[in-house]
Design a protein around this nucleic acid. Structure first.
Lengths: 126, 126
DNA sequence: GCAGAGCGCTTGCAAAAGTTAGCACCCCTG
DNA sequence: CAGGGGTGCTAACTTTTGCAAGCGCTCTGC
């Protein structure tokens, strides 16, 4: 399975998940519906602009979209932690909270009983 | 001045700064030198792949490159967003949530009355 | 039954992206 | 001065992107 058709399936999945038809998505994105069809079936490689529009309409963040398309290299683990630490727009307290949430998410995924723990309480106090 | 030629001049500037000729950069990036020339003079719009290669050769981080090219919104300027996107330990949903929290934090900081908005509701529903 | 509107898909076609070949202009070095 | 190797740029070509038009299908209302 090529990375191209993986991307296509991901997009199709997200679109179906959002209960949107090809033509509706086409209208929202400004991309033609035949082209969207081809993208979803993995026989065309959309440009970054188109990807941006699709992600925008489907509420998927652009970097996530680019990552799926192989346009953004997957960074080494710890990237999130250091990126948060280096951010100059967050307060120290916010960084701390964000990191705790990040950790709790990762813990969720490695748990045997998934979905049991929730991160809601972590944002209770700003 | 179009955003296209701005990008071109930026690349040229970075290349000159690194003391690299067009052909050398072409070889390093795997892109032909005439095309690089056209990119630098702002009369061609490089794809994200090419941009990635250029940034890679010139030691410019990919998100910064995309940002310069207008392929990434300024609001998701940094490392945090792309780092989250690239993380392979989080589910898509978790990434989305984390990004929303991150955004809400930054919004808090730029508001006139800080602390008014809370991010708690963002984690309410899985 | 049969318009009409929705769905996704196929087919050519225009416009970009990108390449190979070759131009003109230097700066050396024999 | 011939020449080779460096620079960046131009021209013609191939490949890919993205779209308009139209296909066949299904469902609904008249």
């Amino acid at each position: 399975m090529s990375a191209l058709s993986e991307l296509g399936e991901f997009i199709r999945e997200q679109r179906r998940n959002a209960q949107i038809s090809l033509r509706q998505l086409a209208q929202q994105t400004g991309v033609s519906n035949p082209y969207l069809s081809q993208i979803e079936r993995g026989l065309r490689r959309p440009s970054a602009e188109v990807l941006q529009q699709i992600g925008n309409a489907l509420r998927i963040s652009t970097p996530v979209m680019y990552l799926r398309a192989g346009l953004l290299e997957a960074k080494e683990s710890g990237g999130v932690v250091s990126a948060i630490a280096a951010d100059d727009e967050l307060t120290e307290r916010q960084k701390h909270l964000l990191l705790e949430i990040y950790d709790s998410f990762r813990r969720e995924n490695t748990e045997h009983s998934p979905g049991a723990d929730r991160a809601g309480h972590l944002v209770e106090e700003s």
